[in-house]
């Protein structure tokens, strides 16, 4: 008899569970950030042509030298301009930074570098946007720490702000 009573309570309990679940999720951002699942995995072979006078970028350029930063940027991307001083600061502190110019015209890249400075050692041109898939990137800008074996060790989503500079230097140190 008692078990029978409990059945009538079941809908209320299920509903309470649903409300708890929704309350927990309420206010979470609508657009989830999709992290790269390539962190910890080696990059596949690639070779990109250079742009704006800089030499091109290939997988072999990332290997052997020690951990480097790879920054995906574009001249049409506002946050990329915002993060330019931080990239310069990272370079001043000894980091090697390579760039990947996403879906851009060479002249626009040159103009962008002239306006916001050029912290890059090498810049690969990616007109089709296919390098995003190689890194597991979902937006621009993104910055990656790649170690001497060509393995992605860390992903930074969005623009680098002043408070992120120390963090990235530490990640570079860890990747040694």
């Amino acid at each position: 008899m008692k078990g029978k009573r409990l059945i009538w309570l079941l809908p209320l309990l299920l509903f309470a569970g649903l409300v708890a679940l929704m309350a927990n999720h309420l206010g979470a951002p609508q657009q989830q950030v999709i992290k790269s699942h390539m962190v910890g995995k080696p990059l596949a072979e690639f070779a990109l042509e250079g742009v704006a006078g800089a030499p091109g970028l290939a997988l072999v350029d990332l290997k052997g030298g020690g951990p480097v930063l790879v920054n995906i940027f574009a001249s049409w991307c506002l946050p990329c301009a915002v993060e330019a001083p931080q990239l310069q600061a990272l370079k001043d502190r000894g980091a090697t930074i390579h760039g990947i110019a996403l879906r851009d015209e060479p002249a626009d890249v040159a103009g962008f570098l002239a306006r916001h400075g050029n912290p890059f050692t090498r810049i690969g041109q990616d007109p089709g946007g296919r390098m995003m898939l190689a890194f597991g990137a979902s937006g621009v800008p993104e910055t990656y720490v790649v170690d001497a074996q060509g393995v992605i060790r860390y992903q930074h989503l969005g623009e680098i702000r002043a408070e992120h500079v120390d963090l990235l230097m530490a990640e570079l140190e860890k990747a040694k």
Binding site: W8, L12, F15, V19
Partner: peptide
């Protein structure tokens, strides 16, 4: 809904 389901129970 909680109220209605309580009445239901």
């Amino acid at each position: 809904i909680g109220g209605a389901l309580t009445i239901y129970a």
